[in-house]
Write a protein that binds this DNA or RNA. Sequence first.
RNA 1: GCGAAAGUGGCGGAGUUGGUAGACGCGCUGGCCUUAGAAGCCAGUGAGAGAAAUCUCGUAGGGGUUCGAGUCCCCUCUUUCGCACCA
Length: 826
Amino acid sequence: MEYPFEKIEKKWQNIWQKKKIFNAEDDTEKKNYYVLSMFPYPSGALHMGHVSNYSIADAITRYKMMQGFNVMQPMGYDSFGMPAENFAIQHHSHPRITTDENIKVMRKQFDMMGFGFDWEREVSTCHPEYYKWGQWFFKRMFEKGLAYKKTSFQNWCSECQTVLANEQVENGKCWRCESEVHQKELEQWFFKITEYAEELLDFSGVIDWPERVKTMQTNWIGKSQGTEIWFKLENSEQLIKVFTTRPDTIFGCTFMALPPEHPIIIEFLKAESEDSKMHRFCDKVLNEDSITRTAEDTIKEGFFTGKYAANPVNNERIQIWITNYVLMDYGTGAVMAVPAHDQRDFEFAKKYNIPMKLVIQNKSGDLILEEMADAYVEPGFLVNSGKFDGMDSQKSLKTISKWMFENKMGKETITYRLRDWGVSRQRYWGNPIPIIYCDDCGTVLVPDEDLPIKLPENVELGKTRQNPLLSVEEWVNVKCPQCGKSARRETDTMDTFVDSSWYFARYVDPKNDTLPFSQELAVKWLPVDQYIGGIEHAVMHLMYARFFHKFMRDLKLVNSNEPFARLLTQGMVTKDGAKMSKSKGNVVDPQYIVDRYGADTVRVFMLFASPPEKDVEWSDEGVKGAFRFLNRIWHLFAKNLELIKTYKDAASDDNKLKGEIKKLRYSTHFTIKKTLNDIENRLQFNTAIAAVMEHLNNVYAVKDVEKLNDFEKAVFAESCVAIPHLMYVFAPHLSEELWILIGNDRLLHDSGTAQFNEDFLVKDKITYAIQIMGKIRGKIKVSADATTEDIKKSALEVENVKKSIEGKNIVKMIVVPDKLVSIVIK
RNA sequence: GCGAAAGUGGCGGAGUUGGUAGACGCGCUGGCCUUAGAAGCCAGUGAGAGAAAUCUCGUAGGGGUUCGAGUCCCCUCUUUCGCACCA
């Protein structure tokens, strides 16, 4: 018979809600603990990825509550963004309506799962009470010079008159109208995240983050030490600055590679006719979308401008080329090409017959330029480099940089791959940027008292593909806050990453209407103790949030350096080896599974199927297995309820216990220790659950419970009681029900963690494996107090061991305490 | 292409510091129960050889370090995630 999960789950969800046990207090004697899962985009129904994420977070939440912490686990919705806008267009509705509908459905499903969220702290980024503060932050950024406007190139579809995301560009064509996408220079708002580059490289403020996330962020920031070298344009006083990490190769520079966006190229173009070859080449490169441009397997192409610059170190003439492989955003946007010592330059020079010059010779001195099939990129000693000839190339880096600086040819500099964060979006469903453009006053901030700038509701979406805000005249036309004359609003909205960069802080004070949140509460709760979310956010979201947190610290809103102390990056839910997605048709609906087996079963399956940071492979049979396990627990209690009730508080510490009952007590205490350690120190829930399963098997192995004596019954009762006590964090409804059935009157979250007695874990015999030349040849059981000599002696007495070492000399014997004996023979 | 990670039975996975590979679950096989099935309970289950004791092989592939390697090092292959307007 199946246990009545439906009744039990509803019952406990109601009790938890009524008792408000998940509503965190701001003022309490208890220590605070903040558990946070990445908030979802409200897509309408929970999917398995959510269920997995929140099952992990909920287990941690409940565990910390048992430990006596005042735990806050809030939840909200990342509800702005392109998908909501597209969804509304498709359904001929308004994102405000569809989003609210979706949130209602999700909320119901959160409740059905029994997750312990503090709903009094709920936030939704598309609500004016929330996005007001995003505007407020934008203003503070602007005031500190951290928000600024510059032109940059964007994927542009002229048919739709709109900017396209990279994912909306398919093979260089617009996903909607299939017309060619080209790069258009547009004015965009940026946040100066590069200002914090150095600080973002420092992870000393976090307690426990996966190494790989730190590495990915470090690589993304891409700090590199190098030299800026100043080349003079021929017949001009103009300087072209290049950035290089290899100033040692400066004497080998034979040409210069620039992107078409480079200011000097734009200047060259002005002198050319519109249909000149140079114009056509630039247009072609610019029309490649940014993915193609940055991919390194793109075929390198170039166009010689016919212009030259002078190499400052020896005044040699350097050809100036326009290329498709140099990025305007990195370094100075110009590259000095040294074909003999850089593979990309080498290939390019071969293709276009550009001269090469060998300036680094290898140790044996046998490099011949004409015979080289590849660039020589290794260190060596300098040749053809004037007074630096013969110098070790690596040592020369500093020397040459210094010499160049002294002679006004360049300077040492640090460059980052990290670019400033472009936050402008030409879309409706986002947070309006609080800027007004006035003909007289220029760019003016909207005064704080006018915030929030609410999104106009009466827009027709989908009529044009342009930003719908452009056509809402009554919204766009405003009076200038400074001079009162007619002015226009900024119609760009902010990247939704802005909304998700500070939401964790809003939860501490979600209803504050004078500030984003109070400093007092932020200090109490931040940083988030445990953050849980997908690995796909390893770089962008997590880095933007770190940047925002440091910015909020500089505003004196928070007093910590990092937003998230511990980070757990959970894997995806897959089925048939692929991520669940509608297009693959391998989606399993949590609702269906909960209806059939209950929320506890789904949670247990999710947590048992793999460790949290790895992907979870969905398995219908596996779910049944989890359900079977919970049923076994239920039936154990149903059968022995009276006995457990009677004996649960009786003494079980009789030292004369023997046989299977002694083993059972060992199992109970060992399981408690192992499970708590797996949860607390390793966040490894799959092995924790496995340990409880194993223990349950041990309990089931005890037959004729009624025939046991009182002490033994107490041991048996104890072994049963441990199960709901440990399972509470994974299967809270079932555990809570059993806990109350056996006569406890405090709920489990308030009952402390299970306790174990170290005395019951002492073994009197220890098994040693015997290895000969690394192969297991036998096993011995020795008493726990045996000396190393005793162990060696008994190892050599084993028949099979004797046979293996016959006629050989024992060279060495190694005894690894509590594990094995290794014998080396010759 | 660049950056990051992963690869262990038929399947999901365990193996925490280099120390008995395969815990636990699924599946499969057999038994009990049942008129039968389902459910449940009990047992077996990496491959190969052998009557057995036991032996050989085995953690993507190849090499190395070590008394001992799934674990450490080098190379190769495959898969997954991210690459700045998806969130």
